[in-house]
Write a protein that binds this DNA or RNA. Structure first.
Lengths: 185, 185
DNA sequence: GTCTATATAAAGATAGAC
DNA sequence: GTCTATCTTTATATAGAC
């Protein structure tokens, strides 16, 4: 089995759930059942290099997952609601942040590391691009589409914060219910 | 001068900007110009006790600040936009999270500490209550008012994440521009 | 490529003088 | 109530055997 991919896979989940600073290397090693030497062989520059690899890996997964959903549904509204539905399921099953969200990483690292901030920025841009493109295809102007796409992204990220504090998926459900109001112009 | 209040004041800002794990006690001590012994005299249970004191302090400030704004403006829409305008100003001046937002703390601590999660939950509830009350006064049903209030909170928190990654206040500006669409029913 | 053992720095916390 | 000095644990990272 490919150790490097294993590390990225497991570390990605841990970083999403607990943030960058909240996860120690030892915790990652234990979860992967590997040793320190092995990890530093694959990521010589250490933890931050691993984080960036995780963010890039998420970038690819986002393409797969969200674009898949957005192809399945005719309207952006339906697709968005289906997507949030999946996040709700994830949250109810795992009780932590999951899916393609990564606020914990952003809030900790954006001001500490330029490379990390950049990787996060790219990821958000990509996600919003998917929303925006479909909205343009539906007839919205490019500017309006971008605004709505941004609002979808922001409210989902913020919604997950509220889910965490309330230990409930309710906030995301409400957001899913309210978002369609943005599509009427 | 009251040392305890000084500590809370400075630590609150640091926690907001860098998160709980991102700020070391030494950094707080240095910023306050005090020693370890002094801090532990005021907060015997240590860092987490200090964080909770900070969240409670924010709780009081929120009442002052947001309610003040919400009294100044007739409609929720105007008040919300004024409030976001202030956040934008803060962000452009300081280039970090400020105001009454605290996503960094939530995402790190919600799953680690029940008391902290609870304090955060109370804070969000209070903020949303202010929004919701004004919306009800404007004629919205209680349920609709709560939904819109939640959406305002979530999109602002998420918007600040986007501002951080983009190093720009633009996301919040766009959100301020798009939010009014939620008020039409 | 993976391991063990070690280095080094920093974290949070405590003890006791003043 | 504030200080200095110290303790303990944990963090990231490195060295070198296999």
């Amino acid at each position: 089995m490919n150790t490097k991919l294993l590390i990225i896979d497991i570390a990605t989940t841990l970083f999403q759930q607990k943030g960058y600073l909240g996860v120690g290397l030892n915790e990652i090693l234990k979860a992967c059942n590997i040793s320190k030497g092995s990890l530093y062989h694959h990521f010589p520059k250490g933890k931050e290099e691993l984080l960036i690899a995780c963010l890039q890996s998420m970038n690819e997964e986002v393409t797969t997952d969200i674009e898949e959903i957005f192809k399945q549904y005719q309207t952006t509204q339906e697709a968005t609601q289906a997507m949030i539905g999946k996040l709700v399921e994830d949250f109810e099953r795992e009780d932590t942040i999951a899916g393609y969200t990564f606020s914990s990483i952003v809030s900790e690292m954006a001001s500490l590391s330029e490379p990390v901030r950049n990787a996060c920025s790219l990821l958000y841009t990509k996600i919003q691009g998917i929303y925006s493109n479909k909205l343009v295809a539906e007839g919205f102007s490019k500017e309006t589409a971008n605004s709505i796409a941004l609002m979808i992204t922001a409210s989902i990220e913020g919604g997950l914060m509220l889910c965490l504090t309330q230990k409930s998926s309710n906030p995301l459900k409400i957001i899913s219910h309210v978002l369609p109001n943005l599509f009427k112009e």
